[in-house]
């Protein structure tokens, strides 16, 4: 696990792209705020949840610009052991994690593929955003992770999802998807903070060529979506090799454009140059999100339109 004292050296390579780098490093010493998303499919009245949590000493405040998202105090409260969680009224989820689905704009009647879906925070968010009336295929290559996804679908009472267990890179053709989300496996640098219990995948699995996996997933997603359709590519890492360079690879291989999108959190344009390599200028339309500005996890989101 990366120690906090090692963080400045680890993140030093991003000094020029992360705004207010020193404040960013300071911010890593603070724990991640706690948020949840309200599931109105099961709980049409937020007051039921808010009153129930208040009785347990929890203060929940609506996040500005993000309907259905609440910030919770105290931030170490075990939301997962409440009856509101058990009954599927809430889904603990950080705010920046909502951004890919905001970019995707799921609508009733659309065919949507969530290529790397487990454990289902974004799948269930899509189902809510489309009033449980889009046709959503939620795929994950690992059975243990898919089991968690299925449990969350059941807990949240979602009816509009079919689950599949394919390798994303070989997901079968034949369905005219309007939209595909690739929330790719990544090094997870954006999640890193003091007391972070996970590991940075980049370090843990040094042998894993994440950019190669991400490129394979994104190209497949693009080939699965119909012409004129939308692919959203997202990660929770700062690493340009897993973000802009992956999307740059697609833009050189396929006819695609990156669309601008409005987000409710502070953001910065994607970079168009990295370590001397000039990238596709359209990458400026992608967006980077940093934890010290969003009070959440670092994220990268690119909304891509298939042109041909």
């Amino acid at each position: 696990m990366l120690k906090l004292s090692e963080a400045p050296a680890y993140f030093e390579r991003y000094r020029d792209i992360i705004p207010d780098f020193e404040r960013f490093l300071e911010h890593l010493k603070e724990p991640l705020p706690l948020y949840f998303r309200l599931n109105e499919l099961k709980c049409p009245d937020p007051e039921i949840v808010l009153k129930g949590l208040a009785r347990q000493g929890v203060k929940a405040e609506l996040v500005s610009g993000l309907p259905r998202f609440y910030r919770v105090e105290p931030r170490d409260f075990p939301l997962g052991s409440t009856e509101e969680y058990y009954l599927g009224y809430i889904y603990p989820m950080t705010t920046s994690s909502a951004l890919p689905v905001i970019a995707l704009e799921p609508r009733p009647g659309e065919y949507i593929l969530d290529l790397c879906a487990a454990p289902g925070s974004k799948t269930t968010q899509m189902a809510q955003a489309s009033q449980d009336k889009a046709v959503i295929v939620a795929n994950d290559r690992r059975l243990d992770r898919l089991t968690a996804l299925v449990a969350n679908l059941k807990r949240l009472g979602v009816a509009s999802v079919a689950t599949t267990l394919y390798r994303g890179e070989t997901f079968p053709f034949g369905i005219p998807f309007d939209k595909v989300l690739v929330d790719a496996p990544c090094s997870g640098e954006g999640r890193y903070r003091q007391g972070y219990e996970g590991e940075l995948l980049y370090q843990k699995e040094g042998h894993t060529n994440l950019p190669a996996i991400q490129k394979g997933l994104l190209v497949r997603a693009f080939d699965l979506v119909k012409v004129g359709g939308i692919v959203v590519y997202s990660t929770c890492t700062f690493n340009p090799e897993e973000n802009e360079l992956v999307v740059d690879y697609l833009l050189r291989k396929r006819q695609a454009e990156i669309l601008l999108c409005e987000y409710p959190l502070p953001c910065h344009p994607g970079i168009t140059e990295w370590e001397g390599k000039i990238l596709h200028p359209g990458l400026a339309n992608a967006r980077r999100f940093y934890p010290h500005e969003t009070q959440s996890v670092g994220f990268f989101v690119a909304k891509i339109k298939r042109l041909m």
Binding site: A134, V150, A162, T164
Partner: peptide, 23 residues
């Protein structure tokens, strides 16, 4: 219970693990 769709056939080509909500 599963969402109604104009044509279920393309989807039926998938090997699914679960479909919809146990009703």
């Amino acid at each position: 219970l599963f969402v109604e769709l104009p044509d279920i056939k393309p989807l039926q080509g998938l090997k699914v693990q679960t479909v919809g909500l146990l009703f």
